[in-house]
Write a protein that binds this DNA or RNA. Structure first.
Lengths: 195, 195, 195, 195
DNA sequence: AATGAATGAGCCTTCATTCAT
DNA sequence: TATGAATGAAGGCTCATTCAT
């Protein structure tokens, strides 16, 4: 597979992502993707064998790009509160995002493949990474005297569950930006020293 | 449709619930349910017109039965801590339940019908009821001097998001009983006075 | 079968006729008729074994009632022109009739059973009766010097074909009352002496 | 869809026409056509979405081919009587035709879609064209002194109704060639001067 | 690499007909 | 007589997947 095919793969994934964002995971058919890509049925099969294959790939790219973002843009002498706020702001974006949002498809994918270790591995890793990052932030904050927290790890887990809860609520019940802000504020206010 | 058919309706719902618990919402076909019920194709259509109809009914019964449970079994002089623990223990059961568990199907149903107000109404109500109940418990606990909490409503919301987060994690990433216990303990420990 | 059942038969036929008038012949199902009659499925089968049975019966009654009408209401010293006009006016009613009109159903029935001698017998008889009646009218008119016609039988046939043609056109292409009047007038004007 | 598929479309239409000729319009199922064509169910749906689509197409072709025929084959110095006879002979063919005859299907189609303007448009046009052609023939015949007719338009309409009447009688009651000949002869004899 | 026609399995839905009550 | 639940056949439609070109 030369460069050219690699470009086509990416093209397909880009178009397919839109489809998954619209229709979720289970409802998407190879036909949907073929139509979105405006290529032939056979053509698609040269690159991907099933909607599952395609979605896995999209999900992988999504998670990779996600982990890259988290890093940059913060001046090195930022306070831990600032860093925490930044982390939460990123999460807020994901919770409220509408365009190119494959959250629902991802949940459906995981429901469909629950029990298959390697299908959910990526997501589990992402969650655990979140816990780790938060733990570090909180610990550092405590050490610097910015935060008060008796158990950083537990608090980190707690925050991650809250975020996950809001994510799923946003996609099912709907969630206003105000509600998200209130909740995130509450989380932070539980940590910072003035408590 | 007399008494007899009412029994059959219930029979179908019972069998169908097992199917939805196994396969989620979208993957379930009328054929699946016909086979689970060991009745004829046409026979099923006498009672329900689609998997959606059937699932809606199951969901309604589920939520109704859920709201009935919450009430009883607590002596009237129970401490608010005991009442909170009871509430959380019920939630824990739902988070970890394996048999007859239509959690995944319910999420899929909501994804499939997001945006349709009346389809998600029941669930939204349930969530809001949870918030209200928790708020009352916390307020009463604060008044009695059992709990410390500056903002009962916000804390109640926070707890509900955590519970939702754990519910969805349990169905996707998997969640051990120990993890759930740890988290619930952490939630309670954040409220009780010794803090 | 007592009186009571006879009444029920008639009730069913009355209700079924409305259904056939609405939906034609082929599209009508036993279910349609059951619903129109507001009786049970099994109940209908006690009286009729199929939509064909029912329609045959309706058609028989229709044709019988039709032949009764033709007779009355003309003073015995009416001119042949008047009698012819009366005949054509009756035909016109049938061509333009909208309510309780089973013309389309009848055509569909005959198409479905073409080749079965006894199914179409009634209709053939009706047509031939029409030819005979017209022939008599014309002959008598010629004898009385009211009409001019070299071949009464051929003219009668001709008129019957025109009527049949207008009937089918009315049900397919649509036909205004004016058009029918023009055509009937043309037919009569071809007969009366002033030609 | 290239040339090849166009061939297949035509192949399907050819086979389907036989089915419609045999079974009429309403009774024909996609399965019938699939079997007549010896292709797969899905294969048929690549070309046509319903029996209605297929029949519409067949009808269109039928009417187009019909209008082409009428033209040629008459020497330019033919008498109007000859031209009229030719026209009627063509009609006679259509009235008595047995093979590839979709007359019944066409009536059923119109009954099923009565009231839908564009579904019946083609047929209405055909009828009106018939009237126009006949009117011209008669007028010309009168001018040349071959025919006697006080009202060409009315006579043309009259003839068209007769033809329609015979067509529908042929498909319902049955009509012998002799009967048709008698009637057509009577029509002509009513026009030519010797009257 | 790419096309898109073709296949056949599978689900949805409706109906005529039966039968226990 | 009358009911209406139940059955199973039949037809509609869509989709994943293959394959000749």
């Amino acid at each position: 597979m030369g460069e050219k095919s690699e470009l086509k793969r990416e093209y397909i994934l880009k178009k397919a992502k839109v489809v998954f964002a619209h229709k979720g995971y289970r409802a998407v058919t190879m036909k949907d993707i073929v139509e979105a890509c405006e290529i032939s049925r056979g053509g698609l099969y040269l690159y991907f064998g099933s909607t599952e294959d395609i979605f896995k790939e999209i999900l992988k790219l999504e998670l990779e790009s996600g982990s890259e973002e988290g890093s940059g843009n913060l001046s090195q002498d930022a306070s831990m509160t600032e860093i925490l706020m930044f982390f939460l702001k990123e999460q807020k974006k994901m919770i409220l995002r509408k365009k190119q949002d494959i959250t629902i498809a991802t949940y459906e994918y995981m429901f469909a493949h629950r029990g298959e270790k390697d299908s959910t591995e990526m997501i589990r890793t992402q969650f655990e990474t979140g816990v780790m990052v938060l733990t570090k932030i909180i610990q550092e904050g405590v050490e610097r005297g910015e935060f008060y927290c008796a158990n950083a790890k537990a608090e980190a887990n707690n925050i991650m569950y809250v975020l996950e809860g809001m994510k799923v609520c946003a996609k099912t019940l709907g969630l206003s930006e105000r509600k998200v802000d209130e909740e995130l504020l509450y989380l932070v206010s539980g940590l910072v020293m003035e408590e």
